[in-house]
């Protein structure tokens, strides 16, 4: 059974989230403010944290940064703000994904499942999702068992998207992995390569969804 920690200052929201999560078999603990949240995270050792970015002051972001100093637990950001810069800041400070309030329960649960899965992708030579697999040993990508012809950059791009599959990955995170060590700004090139990769994935492959101002998400299943 997974254990979830909810850090949100709205009592009603906590109560509702508890009901939703408990009905899905989660064990739930909660905290109404940042400091208590950090203590709970240390004592209860949750498998996943739901963190409200709108805690009083700059609360949510502070909790996230302090949590990341010692913990690797998957964090889902809950936010009513729809300003992209704040989300990007949270994602680059170590959050795994976000949902914007008001969110649907189905969306919330799907995101939770995906971010809890993320640890295991690194341990195999093959990464796959939505009909696409890449083999890191043979440096080969297949779409429905047919070998895809990819340039090295497209391969690296697909690899990042697959590693994050279902999760948002920011533009900076992609650039850091695919164009590591390059000094020129490759963001324009990124669009072009995404465009090519989308064409090669076609309608049968997974969809690369752009979330404007934030990054990309590989939609699977």
């Amino acid at each position: 059974m997974s254990k979830a920690l909810i850090i949100d200052d709205e009592q009603q929201m906590r109560r509702l989230l508890r009901m939703v999560l408990e009905s899905r078999g989660y064990e739930v603990c909660e905290a109404a403010e940042g400091q208590l949240g950090l203590q709970e995270a240390a004592f209860q050792r949750p498998d996943v944290v739901l963190l409200d970015l709108g805690l009083p002051g700059n609360g949510g972001m502070d909790v996230l940064k302090r949590l990341r100093e010692w913990s690797d637990v998957p964090v889902l950001i809950l936010s009513v703000r729809d300003r992209e810069a704040v989300k990007v800041e949270a994602l680059e400070a170590g959050a795994d994904d976000y949902v914007t309030k008001p969110f649907g329960t189905a969306e919330l649960l799907a995101r939770l499942t995906v971010i809890q899965r993320r640890r295991f992708t690194r341990q195999s030579v093959e990464i796959g999702a939505g009909g696409v697999t890449i083999n890191l040993l043979h440096h080969e990508a297949r779409l429905h068992d047919e070998v895809m012809k990819l340039t090295p950059i497209e391969f690296a791009l697909l690899r990042v998207l697959l590693e994050f599959s279902g999760r948002i990955v920011t533009q900076n995170q992609i650039i850091k992995r695919v164009w590591a060590g390059q000094s020129s700004d490759p963001s324009e090139g990124l669009r072009v390569h995404i465009n090519h990769l989308r064409k090669k994935l076609g309608v049968t492959g997974p969809r690369i969804v752009n979330e404007p101002g934030i990054g990309y998400r590989l939609e699977v299943g």
Partner: peptide
């Protein structure tokens, strides 16, 4: 926030 609560 209330709208989100109603939705959930």
């Amino acid at each position: 926030t209330p709208i989100a609560i109603i939705r959930t």
